[in-house]
Design a protein around this nucleic acid. Structure first.
Lengths: 144, 144
DNA sequence: ATAGTAATGGACAAAACTGTCCAATAAGTA
DNA sequence: TACTTATTGGACAGTTTTGTCCATTACTAT
């Protein structure tokens, strides 16, 4: 469903959010370790999240990644998916037809649109805080 | 959402089904032309559909691809997706965690499962005949 | 039987995605 | 200023997906 990069990205964001809520800045190594992902590749993904204004990065000693107090309250999964994979998953035709649209639809168009909208609504309605809550209370995990 | 191969596969199946309902056998070239797909690559995909018992292939002159009268009535999208992409899209964890399951879920598990089930139900409930019907009555298309 | 036709299967090539390495950059501290 | 630390960015390698080419196989018709 999501790309590997996007999966790592979501898991990273959840972890960083959890630490940010405790006012902790986290480094690349720590993130990669905590979500069990390849370090250098994770670095590229965090760069994307930084450029997409999902997370904040600071260089140098005492540097690391955080999520601002402002955005952490409203940050949801859709924003993260879009920052990494773009919005193709929410917009593209189910059968890969470029000319498919509401007026001239492919035969699967309306049914596909319905589940795609379900997916979009679910991602929009799912906050990072909510997801971190499940890690925090032990009813969810981020590794392996 | 689906792989390119799967998109071509679904479009091929819809076209072949339509022709089979009119007792017409269709060749690779015709399929590729009608759904606007690369011929040689489409060949590989039709081989997969053949091995997955979705379509029937016959060699030699007068050969080509068909769907049997029996299976055409019950054939749905889920069977085609599984024949080409496998069932990973219906089973995998949304965050890519191998150890994620009902008892030890990732934080997105239950919500993700819901939309994945919606997708599965939609694909199971969507017959190839229904899709071809939209081509036939002009309310849908398969090219570009 | 033979020639012609159409799918098959294997090898190969291009592109995208995933992953690694390292020098450069930016920032903090002494 | 010099040194250390951590992210950044560029080049590169491996793998998967997508796409191509061609000889072989199976079949039909003459």
């Amino acid at each position: 469903m999501f790309s590997k990069a996007c999966e790592y990205g979501i898991r990273s964001a959840i972890y960083i959010a959890g630490q940010s809520m405790q006012s902790r800045k986290v480094g690349l190594k720590e993130v990669a370790k905590e979500i069990d992902s390849p370090e250098a590749y994770t670095s590229k993904i965090l760069q994307k999240l930084t450029k997409g204004n999902v997370i904040i990065s600071e260089k140098g000693p005492t540097g690391g990644f955080t999520i601002s107090n402002d955005s952490i309250k409203t940050l949801n999964l859709a924003a993260i998916v879009i920052a990494i994979d773009g919005d193709a998953i929410f917009k593209g035709c189910g059968l890969g037809l470029k000319k498919c649209n509401e007026k001239k639809p492919c035969p699967l168009h309306h049914k596909f649109k319905a589940v795609r909208n379900d997916l979009y609504n679910m991602l929009t309605a799912t906050s990072i805080i909510e997801l971190y809550g499940k890690i925090d209370d032990g009813s969810g995990f981020l590794k392996r």
